[in-house]
Nucleic acid binder design. Structure first.
Length: 875
DNA sequence: GAGTTTGAAACT
DNA sequence: CAGTTTCAAACTC
């Protein structure tokens, strides 16, 4: 901190002088750096920004320092974790060191502020600079209307998150351009700024496109990754430029620090991202920085491992519900994703996380698709325009929010005062592209009343909440609150909709009734009395799932499945199962039974894929029947098309989860991460939970599931997660890791395979999925059972399966092994049965990628839901 | 946009 | 565990 001040002084004194000179004085190397050259070459617009940047720099040492010290990252990372949402605004400016000096003079106060804001961590000059810049940016924004400027479209914010992953560069450029133009005005005219911003943004966009594209081309995928981590981070811009020229560690460092995404209550994501980035970057920064990171970083990790995830990802209805519609998009995404690196996947996940709430960002979904595909191919391909549109400036929001917590009231006022932004893209439904918005007034967004909070995400600018504490600034408060709520109800943040193992084999389903309720069900069920489960008042209906026996609704007419029908089907199905070996299995979870059935029916082998494929479809089908979503889901499923097409449609309910909502990408991604992992992980969780914790109903499950999700998300990430994941997650990770790795591999696997595998995967665990993919032959199952599951899983799995993950209360009925033996074609089968069971559950197409993943949450939930099932399931 | 309805969440 | 209150979304006008 000290250094920054000094630097500020220097800067201020030298402000008149060229930045280069100042920088040189402080850090000669910087001047020489290619970065400066690049900056110099930049368009005139830069200058304006530069001035702007200068403000940011005021406190900071010369920009060149930044280049010099890679360490910055560490701190930035730490901050990062805590404050996912930094504004990206001034980053560009900072990158343009030349101009900066000039601007510094403008706001010495700001610099001071920024300095004050800086975390207590001691930072090298360069680091300080970076950090300070970031902070300054944020502060500036908060203090001034600038934030608005950066906010192109509140709605887009979500998209931006997604987009960020793809091309942060664009944002940066845009921001820079905008900032340059607007800088002079920003402070004085906050209100006007917004309007201007939009206009300016458009202009700047056009102007900057060429440059952006160029820059883009230069940027490596790494940048993208970084972007993912820090959508906002002003650093991002800097980093981007730096990356271009130097591609040096600095870039990486800068990138890392980027703030977490706005909404990442699920710190996991942010953390995962950060970690993932670190890995990907392979920069040395990672470990040391992490170690350095303040207690907060550790806290964040804890959060990540712990509660954040559980609550976060796909658990919530929001994500689930929304995810449904865009199955197609998800599919495509999945495909694209397959090609895309895991990092991209993570990005998507991040996006999803943010979008979980809504899952509706249809536009965003498409954009994301494009982005993904484009990114997979090459970042350069991306259209800057898209970026611009999507790119948000979370920083803006955060800036505002970064204001003192005490200022929450003000904060509220601000948020309210600027309804324009929020309203700009807010849909009538209150959902942005993909992200939900809340309108909390009394809960401070710290209760489950708040959709954002319930979804494990931070409130966004688009939210109309008052006195919101669900913001990165109040991370601690949020975390504490979450813990409290979880202490009351460990599953409070668990996905409300669980994909119960109930996925009935198609055959059986057919036998019973096409109307069979999808496997996906609301964990707690609804309690509707007047809405007849035909309105969104009904959580089941809202989630596009049918009512189940868990529901206490009156006069249920849920279009997605009536409670009565569900019960009837369930009953019939259970009978069939019971007739078979299933009874022996007493383990009990519905899943097990189903699996058992499947095994008996030979579905697993011959039709295994089909089943898997179908299974995912099946859930959606119901929906499809009644709703649009179902249709979409079908589309997705169509790819897989299991043996029985018709049936598929029937069963689809899961698809909803797995499927992407309108914003499939985000939601999907999230879901994928969650669910992919989740579905798999969900089962995993169950297994893992059972393994590690038989008892737990507790939060651990959620955390575990989450962790699993992450791991599954990406191969590399999985590793990162392991390392990065806090203790809690780690516990669970042990088992999952292998799985995770598998899962990731699956995801990465070729698109075609993926799809297939994906369907399988859902059923099976990630590892299993791999096997399946590798071995398409019937033997796959066996292989999977044996090969896939890590020993731990195998052992654990059998018992686990017996135990219902979701239901803490539930106890092991019997060891699965015995059952498996009985079942079986072979003893292996017995084990398999458990696994097989998993396979069934998998139905969602986890491999497919994000979309499929959506199911994951259901799976996770499944644990909880399982309990219900167990109750319901006749045995 | 304001007011009402609805049901989940929180509280007792 | 049940009843009541609080809350915010969904819905209606």
């Amino acid at each position: 901190m000290d250094s920054p001040e000094t630097s500020k002084n220097n800067v201020t004194t030298t402000a008149s002088t060229t930045t280069a000179a100042t920088s040189s004085s402080e850090s000669p190397p910087v001047q020489e750096s290619p970065f400066f050259r690049f900056v110099n070459n930049l368009s005139p617009i830069k200058s304006a920004k530069a001035s702007h940047l200068a403000q940011g720099f005021l406190g900071l040492s010369s920009p060149p320092l930044v280049f010099t010290s890679p360490r910055i990252n560490s701190q930035s990372e730490a901050q990062f974790l805590k404050r996912p949402q930094f504004s990206q605004s001034h980053c560009v400016e900072t990158s343009q060191g030349n101009n900066k000096s000039e601007s510094f003079i403008d706001d010495p106060d700001i610099s001071n502020k920024s300095a004050s804001l800086l975390p207590g961590n001691v930072i090298t000059d360069t680091q300080k600079d970076l950090v300070i810049k970031n902070d300054e940016n944020t502060q500036h924004c908060s203090s001034s209307p600038r934030v608005d400027e950066y906010l192109v479209d509140p709605v887009d914010v979500d998209c931006m998150y997604t987009t960020h992953s793809v091309n942060p560069d664009v944002k940066q450029f845009n921001d820079a351009v905008e900032s340059s133009q607007e800088e002079s005005k920003d402070v004085d005219e906050p209100e006007n700024i917004e309007d201007e911003i939009t206009d300016v943004g458009g202009l700047s966009k056009e102007c900057a496109k060429s440059e952006r594209q160029q820059c883009r081309n230069s940027f490596s995928q790494d940048l993208q990754e970084y972007e993912d981590c820090g959508e906002m981070g002003p650093n991002s811009s800097i980093c981007a430029e730096n990356m271009k020229q130097d591609g040096s560690e600095l870039m990486q460092a800068c990138l890392k620090p980027r703030g977490m995404r706005r909404r990442c209550l699920q710190f996991e994501e942010a953390a995962s991202n950060a970690f993932g980035n670190i890995k990907s970057s392979s920069l040395p920064l990672n470990t040391p920085e992490e170690s350095r990171t303040s207690s907060r970083s550790s806290e964040l990790r804890d959060l990540i491992a712990y509660g954040s995830k559980p609550s976060g990802i796909g658990l919530h209805l929001n994500s689930i519900v929304n995810a449904m519609p865009l199955a197609e998009g998800c599919m495509q995404k999945m495909k694209s994703v397959s090609s895309v690196s895991w990092q991209k996947v993570e990005n998507m996940n991040k996006c999803l996380i943010s979008s979980n709430m809504d899952g509706q960002s249809s536009v965003g979904a498409e954009d994301e698709r494009r982005e993904i595909t484009a990114t997979s191919e090459s970042p350069s391909t991306m259209d800057p325009s898209n970026y611009l549109d999507h790119v948000e400036h979370p920083a803006d929001v955060h800036y505002k929010r970064k204001l003192n917590p005490k200022e929450a009231g003000n904060f509220e006022e601000m948020s309210q005062s600027s309804p324009k932004r929020k309203k700009k893209k807010i849909s009538a439904t209150g959902e942005d592209d993909g992200c939900k918005r809340c309108n909390c007034k009394k809960s401070k967004c710290l209760k489950l009343y708040c959709d954002c909070f319930a979804a494990g995400i931070y409130c966004a600018e688009t939210c109309s909440c008052q006195g919101c504490y669900n913001r990165p600034e109040y991370e601690d408060t949020v975390f504490e609150t979450r813990q409290q709520i979880e202490s009351r109800n460990p599953l409070a943040f668990a996905p409300k909709i669980v994909q119960r193992a109930t996925d009935f084999p198609l055959n059986e389903m057919e036998d019973v009734h096409l109307t069979t309720p999808s496997s996906a069900r609301h964990k707690r069920g609804c309690n509707c009395k007047r809405s007849l489960c035909l309105k969104k008042y009904c959580e089941c209906y809202q989630a596009n799932v049918g009512c189940s026996s868990a529901c206490r609704c009156e006069g249920c007419k849920n279009a997605y499945g009536k409670k009565e029908d569900y019960i009837a089907i369930e009953h019939a199905f259970s009978k069939e199962r019971l007739s078979g070996r299933v009874e022996k299995v007493s383990d009990g979870t519905f899943h097990n039974e189903l699996e058992m059935v499947a095994n008996n029916t030979d579905l697993l082998r011959g039709d295994l894929f089909d089943l898997h494929q179908l299974s995912p479809l099946t859930p959606s089908l119901q929906c499809s029947d009644q709703g649009k979503e179902a249709a979409k889901s079908r589309v997705l499923t169509g790819n897989y098309h299991p043996s029985s097409g018709s049936d598929v449609t029937v069963f689809t309910p899961h698809a909803k989860f797995a499927e992407c909502p309108e914003n499939p990408e985000r939601s999907l991604v999230l879901q994928e991460t969650n669910e992919m992992v989740g579905t798999d992980s969900g089962h995993w969780q169950l297994d893992s939970d059972n393994v590690e914790i038989m008892d737990q109903s507790s939060p651990r499950c959620t955390s575990v599931s989450n962790a699993g999700r992450f791991a599954s998300m990406s191969n590399a990430p999985s590793r990162t997660m392991d390392a990065s994941i806090p203790s809690k997650t780690r516990e669970w990770t042990h088992h999952p890791q292998a799985q995770q790795s598998h899962g990731s591999s699956n995801i990465l696997s070729g698109g075609s395979l993926r799809w297939r595998s994906s369907p399988i995967t859902p059923m099976t665990r990630l590892g299993e999925i791999k096997n399946l993919e590798c071995n398409e032959s019937e033997s796959r199952l066996f292989d999977i059972l044996e090969d896939e599951t890590p020993e731990v899983l195998k052992e654990a799995s059998t018992p686990r399966e017996s135990v219902k993950a979701s239901s803490p209360n539930q106890k092991r009925v019997s060891p699965p092994k015995s059952l498996a033996r009985e079942l079986g074609s072979s003893s292996s089968v017995g084990l398999r049965s458990g696994r097989k069971f998993i396979l069934k559950a998998v139905p969602s197409f986890p491999p497919l990628t994000p979309c499929i993943d959506s199911k994951g949450p259901s799976h996770e939930n499944s644990g909880a839901s399982n309990s219900k099932y167990s109750k319901q399931a006749p045995r």
